[in-house]
């Protein structure tokens, strides 16, 4: 069934303990808020180690093992050896004199990603956003002038124009009276950074709620 078989007895013995390990590690990491200490260091290193191990195990179980055992050995799909060989060639990088071997899979990978990103990531999302930015400033709805939408569109297109103007570094065209555009753009950017900082704070508060919920609800069953 599972990619990596763990004796079920061990799993059952650890299950009741695992939430408490989570609580202890959370408190250990929080101890850093008071000051740097060995408990925090232990928790930090344990996290890095277990995260790396988890990624390695799941990658092996879900990809490497099915690929080698099932696809190649059982189903006889021998062409899959080619990408495996390409992948193995990357490990020649540390060997002086054979570094050139690792460049072939890297060039393949860079070429694939460059093509993929240029055609898909840039073309569709970017062009869609540009198209959606070109909004009418005078909007009519059922033959009548729609003031609210018009103001909204005016602010939206104005802010985009000002922000783009701010980043025209190589052309110093906004001098003298036109300098107000740059000053306004700076204000707009500061407002955007403030909004970004605000959502960041919200994210951290949610993180705190998540940990408290885990300790008080999932483990201690206080509510």
């Amino acid at each position: 069934m599972a990619g990596v078989q763990v004796p079920i007895g061990i799993v059952n013995a650890l299950n009741p303990l695992s939430p408490w390990i989570g609580v202890l590690v959370t408190l250990g990491v929080w101890s850093f808020l008071y000051k740097e200490n060995p408990v925090f260091r232990i928790c930090e290193h344990a996290y890095v180690g277990s995260a790396a191990a988890h990624t390695m195990v799941t990658t092996f179980a879900n990809n490497i093992k099915p690929g080698l055992v099932v696809d190649i050995a059982q189903n006889g799909e021998y062409w899959r050896i080619i990408p495996i060989l390409l992948g193995c060639m990357i490990y020649f990088q540390p060997f002086r004199g054979y570094t050139w071997v690792s460049r072939y899979p890297m060039s393949f990978w860079v070429g694939y990603n460059a093509g993929y990103n240029l055609t898909l990531r840039v073309a569709m999302p970017l062009l869609t956003e540009v198209r959606r930015t070109m909004l009418p400033i005078f909007v009519t709805n059922n033959g009548r002038f729609d003031l609210a939408t018009s103001i909204n569109n005016f602010i939206f297109t104005g802010v985009v124009t000002l922000t783009l103007a701010y980043f025209l570094f190589s052309m110093n065209v906004f001098k003298g009276r036109a300098g107000f555009m740059i000053r306004t753009a700076r204000l707009v950017l500061m407002a955007a950074f403030g909004a970004g900082f605000g959502t960041g704070i919200a994210n951290y508060v949610s993180l705190l709620i998540g940990r408290f919920d885990f300790i008080m609800s999932d483990v201690l069953k206080l509510f």
């Binding site: 999302p125 869609t128 956003e129 959606r132 970004g196 959502t199 919200a202 994210n203 949610s206």
Partner: peptide, 15 residues
């Protein structure tokens, strides 16, 4: 909530 601004942009753009 940390991704809300960029997600909002994508939603507004119709992506």
């Amino acid at each position: 909530s940390g991704m809300y601004i960029s997600s909002g942009n994508n939603y507004q753009a119709g992506l």
